[in-house]
């Protein structure tokens, strides 16, 4: 299967100041991430706040330029941000954000906003654009009479539908969704998840779904990558990875999800908190919290190894796993 988008060894470093007059300290938000998404595939990226998952999402679109590594879309490296070639490509690469109210213009009726990408990329004539807007609104479950409404007149779920309709306007090939349902109530969240489920694989639409909600990711995605402090620590087909996680962090993360009817007992409760990305421990970043850590974890960065059935994990204590070359 050919990859639609492929990232190799991506690095993104931010400089943060400690205090008002402090020295700038480099923070490696994304630290050597490689991944690929095939046409029609949905990849979930999970991790806690500060793990670099949102930065990675923006890097895949070229919104945040990579300082190391390369993103290839459809076989060719992503053009530089702001160039005409990049702007043209953005019709094929779209993003859905967490907060729909911030992503929409409060002063424009929603139909105008859904139409905007068609105007920018000069798709069809006026009649064709109008027909496309009506078609998009219907496909995301908005009524035709809501076309003239303003964002504040809609509910949270409806606003997120507008953002999704706008992202779909130019029939993109890749949709990057950054926490698209996190701000929504459970009953509305299910409506939007079902909408995204319906889009999956439609016309080969690939999706990168960034979320901290493991239940939603399991429901929606084909494959999932788990991030910890800027690196992917485990990756694989979603059912397999949730049924038999190998990395101690993935195990703890899955165990920490409260499931109605599951008692508190027997869950893995990690000690401590994710370390400050500016003070990344040497070796495996997870070792200060890891119940299995030993001497080697402090000294050496674990490499990705195949763990069977399409899964990979980066841990020194994977018994029986074979070392494989990093290149995909």
């Amino acid at each position: 299967m050919s990859a639609l988008i492929e990232a190799e060894d991506l690095v993104r470093v931010y400089a943060t100041r400690q205090g008002l007059f402090g020295r700038a300290v480099p923070v490696r938000a994304v630290d050597g991430v490689s991944l690929r998404v095939a046409r029609g595939e949905t990849l979930g990226i999970v991790g806690e706040s500060g793990s670099g998952k949102s930065t990675l999402g923006r890097m895949l679109l070229g919104v945040d330029p990579a300082q190391g590594g390369v993103v290839r879309f459809d076989g060719a490296p992503l053009p530089d941000k702001g160039t005409p070639a990049w702007r043209a490509l953005r019709a094929r690469l779209q993003m859905v954000y967490q907060d729909p109210l911030a992503a929409l213009d409060r002063r424009l009726p929603i139909a105008r906003q859904i139409r905007e990408p068609l105007d920018i990329h000069a798709r069809g004539d006026d009649a064709a654009r109008r027909a496309r807007v009506a078609e998009l609104m219907q496909s995301v479950g908005l009524r035709a009479d809501q076309a003239g409404r303003y964002p504040h007149e809609l509910s949270g779920g409806q606003r997120q539908r507008v953002v999704i309709a706008r992202a779909l306007a130019c029939a993109p090939e890749l949709l990057v969704c950054d926490e698209p349902v996190s701000a929504l109530d459970v009953s509305i969240q299910a409506q939007v998840v079902n909408l995204l489920r319906g889009l999956r694989g439609e016309n080969g639409l690939a999706m990168v779904f960034i979320s901290h909600d493991l239940k939603v990711v399991r429901n929606l995605c084909d494959r999932v990558a788990v991030m910890y402090l800027g690196r992917i620590v485990e990756e694989g087909p979603v059912e397999r990875l949730f049924a038999a996680p190998r990395h101690p962090y993935t195990r703890a993360l899955i165990s920490s999800v409260p499931d109605p009817g599951q008692p508190l007992k027997g869950r893995i409760i990690l000690q401590g908190e994710p370390p400050n990305p500016a003070k990344r421990p040497p070796g495996c970043a997870f070792y200060p919290r890891c119940p299995q850590a030993s001497g080697i974890c402090r000294a050496e960065l674990p490499q990705m190894r195949a763990t069977g059935q399409g899964c990979r994990a980066a841990c020194h204590h994977l018994d029986g796993a074979d070392p494989v070359p990093q290149a995909a």
Binding site: G157, Q158, S187, I188, V193, N194, K215, I254, D259
Partner: peptide
């Protein structure tokens, strides 16, 4: 019942979710 049905599960089959239609 609707609240329970709307939550995706961590175990078992992965089908379409059952949302509560409409809004509050």
């Amino acid at each position: 019942r609707g609240l329970f049905d709307a939550i995706p599960r961590l175990y078992g089959p992965r089908g379409a979710l059952v949302p509560i239609s409409g809004t509050v």
